[in-house]
Nucleic acid binder design. Structure first.
Lengths: 337, 337
DNA sequence: ATTCTTTTTGTAAACCTTTTCATTTGTTTT
DNA sequence: AAAACAAATGAAAAGGTTTACAAAAAGAAT
C-alpha cells in the first residue's frame, strides 16, 4: 500500500533536510530562493499535504473550534451557525458541529470530546448557562464564547440582544395599535435567557401603560410551532378573545397564526400576531409575520470574531456584546378596530 | 502556567509506566485489576484527558469526518446534516461542517484542509459531481459518500432517491386530478441531479399520457423561494393560465403559491401547487403544501452509516442506495374544475 | 530447588511536525 | 590571505500517544 507522503519524502526528493522543507512550508525568509523552488517542486510532485495532527501537537493549536448548539435543523441555530462558519472560514478555522438537543449530559460529553481533540475554542448556544456549565467550561480551560445566551455572573464573553427591551418594544407596538387584550405565548418559564426576559419585557410594556398583567393571557410554550399552535387554541376559547398575540418565537407565532386561520378567523383583522426572531419563515407565510428581528447571522459572526480575538490575544473591546434588535412591521398586525 | 496533564503525569502518579496507562485507557485485558484501579484513580485525580492529536498521529484515525454541503441555513441541508451528525455521534465520530455555497473552488479548498486535518472520511453534498470532483476525491484517497447526489460513473457510494420517478409520480398525480395544463418550475437546467432528472420525470409523466410538453410551461429556477415566486409571476401572465404548478423544490413551490395568493387567486381552487422535498415549511403555510417527500434525515443518517461501514471495513450491501420517496397529499392540490 | 510457562509490566521506537542550536557556506572587511 | 560576520542549512529534541519487544514477576511442573 502506498502511504501518504510526509515531509521526509519531500526532503529526500528535494535533497534538503526536513527542517528546510518545514521552513519553506511556513514561509520562513531564511531559505534561499533556488532551494525554495526545489522544495516547492517536490511538494507539488508528491502532492504533499502537511499533517495537521503533527502540527497541532507541536504548535498546540489546531485551527479548529467547536460549536455546541441545540439543533441544527432549527432555523435560528442554522442561521447563527452559518455566521460562525463564514467567519471561521475566513480566518482559516474549521468548526466541529455538535447538536445537544439541550441535554446537559450531551453538552458535557461534547465538551470532553472536543477538549480531547484539542480544539482552540468553543462557541456555545443553549437555553441556559448554569453553574455546572460554568464549572465545566472553567475546568476545561477552553476559551468559550456564548451566543444568544449569557451567564448570570457575566463570567464568559457573550453576544446577545436585550431581550427584555425587545419584548417591551414589541408589546408597546401592539399597545400603540390600540390593542389592550394582548396574549403572550412565552418560552419556558424557567429559561432565563429567552423565556423569563421576554416575559418580563411583555409585562413591563403593559405596566408602563398602567395595564394589568392577566395570567390567563400568558401561556408557556417551548419556542416550537406546535406549542404555538396548541396554546393559541386555548387562547381562542377565552371570552372575550385576545385581540393580539405576541409570541416569543416566530415558530410559535406562525403556529398561533395558523391556529387562528384554521379556526376560520382572520389575521390581522380578528387577531394580530407578532413574532420574535425574524427567521425566513416570516416572509413565506401569508399574511407575512411582523416580528422582532434578532441579527442571527451577525450574532454568530460576531461571536466567532470575538473567539478569534481571544485566541490571537487581540484586545476585546467588549466582553458582553448586546446587538441591536429591530421591530419589523409586515402584515400580521393592524390597528385594533 | 499550569500545563495539561499528560499520560506521563498519570504514569508517575500511579507509579507505573506510560505503557500501562495506555493499556488501561484502551481497555487492554492484560493489566492487573489493582493496577488498573490505581491508574484510574490517578486519571481522575489529575482530570486527565488523552490527547486526540497524538492518538490520531499514531493510529491514523481521528474519529472525525468532514461534510461539505452547500449551505447550512437551507432547511434541506440542515435536515440532512442532522441525520449525519446523529449517527456520527452514536459511533463516536465528530463532524466538521463546511459550507461551500456550491462554489467549486471552495469545495476543493475544503477537501484540502480536511485532508490535512486527517479526517477519516467525507460526506459530500452538492449540485453536481463533475469529473474534477471525482479526480480530487480520488487523489485525496479519502473515503467519500455522496448524499442527495451521485456521480455519473457510479464510482462513489451514494444515497439518493429516484428523482425521475418521483417527479413522474408527482406529475401523474396532477394529471390524475384532471389537470392538463401543468407548469413546471425546474431546478437549474444544467443540474444533473435535481434539475434534469426532475424535469425528465415531469416530461415522462406528460408523455405517458400522450400530452405535449409545452416549452412555455417550463421555467428555470434555482430551488430558492425567490425564483419560485418570480417564475410564477411569469406563468400567471400566460393565456390561458396553467391550472397546476409543480415545482422542483418546496421553497420554489411556496414562492409560487405566494405569487398566486398575492395575485388575488386561490390555491388550490384556481391553481394547484405541488412541491418537492417535504421540508418543515410545507405544513406551516396555508394551504399546506402537497409535496414529494425526500427522506432528508434518513439520507444523511444512511450516508453516515455507509461511511462508517467503509471506515470499519464492514461490507456494504449496496454502494448506490436509492431511498423511497413518498407523495404527500395535503391541501394545495385539488381536482381540476 | 530448578526449569518452564504464563501473566504482568516496562523500554523504546514510531507517528510527523516545528524549532533551537550548531554547523556549513558565502560574503565582506582588513 | 586571514579574520569577522551574515546567511543558509542540518541534526536532534520535543510534542503525547501506541505498541512491538524485552524483561520481570508469578505460577506450575519437574
Amino acid at each position: 500500500m502506498i502511504t501518504k507522503p510526509t515531509i521526509k519524502d519531500v526532503a529526500k526528493l528535494a535533497e534538503v533536510s526536513i527542517a528546510t522543507v518545514s521552513r519553506v512550508l511556513n514561509g520562513s525568509p531564511l531559505v534561499q530562493e533556488k532551494t525554495r523552488q526545489r522544495v516547492w517542486k517536490a511538494i507539488e510532485k508528491l502532492n504533499y499535504k502537511p499533517n495537521a495532527l503533527a502540527r497541532g501537537l507541536i504548535n498546540k493549536k489546531t485551527q479548529t473550534v467547536g460549536m455546541i448548539i441545540p439543533d441544527i435543523s432549527n432555523a435560528f441555530s442554522a442561521e447563527v451557525v452559518r455566521g460562525i462558519e463564514d467567519i471561521a472560514n475566513i480566518h482559516n478555522y474549521n468548526v466541529i458541529l455538535c447538536n445537544s438537543d439541550l441535554d446537559f449530559q450531551r453538552e458535557m460529553k461534547y465538551v470532553t470530546t472536543l477538549q480531547e481533540k484539542q480544539i482552540d475554542g468553543l462557541i456555545f448556544l443553549s437555553e441556559q448557562v448554569t453553574d455546572e456549565h460554568l464549572d465545566c467550561f472553567i475546568e476545561s480551560r477552553l476559551p468559550v464564547v456564548l451566543v444568544a445566551t449569557h451567564d448570570d455572573k457575566g463570567l464568559l464573553p457573550s453576544v446577545n440582544i436585550d431581550n427584555v427591551m425587545a419584548a417591551r418594544v414589541a408589546t408597546e407596538y401592539l399597545l400603540g395599535l390600540g390593542h389592550r387584550r394582548i396574549a403572550f405565548i412565552s418560552g419556558p418559564f424557567d429559561d432565563p435567557i429567552a423565556g423569563i426576559t421576554r416575559l418580563t419585557g411583555y409585562k413591563q410594556g403593559l405596566q408602563a401603560k398602567g395595564l394589568p398583567v392577566l395570567e390567563e393571557l400568558i401561556l408557556e410554550g417551548d419556542f416550537t410551532y406546535k406549542t404555538g399552535y396548541r396554546n393559541m387554541r386555548k387562547l381562542l376559547q377565552l371570552q372575550p378573545r385576545p385581540t393580539a398575540v405576541f409570541a416569543a418565537s416566530d415558530e410559535m407565532a406562525v403556529g398561533a397564526m395558523n391556529a387562528i386561520l384554521d379556526n376560520g378567523l382572520k389575521v390581522p383583522a380578528d387577531i394580530a400576531v407578532l413574532g420574535f426572531d425574524n427567521i425566513d419563515l416570516t416572509t413565506k407565510v401569508r399574511p407575512r409575520l411582523s416580528t422582532i428581528a434578532q441579527p442571527m447571522y451577525d450574532m454568530g459572526a460576531i461571536a466567532m470574531q470575538m473567539l478569534i480575538k481571544i485566541l490571537t490575544d487581540a484586545p476585546l473591546e467588549k466582553r458582553i456584546v448586546k446587538l441591536p434588535f429591530e421591530l419589523i412591521i409586515r402584515e400580521s398586525c393592524s390597528v385594533k378596530k
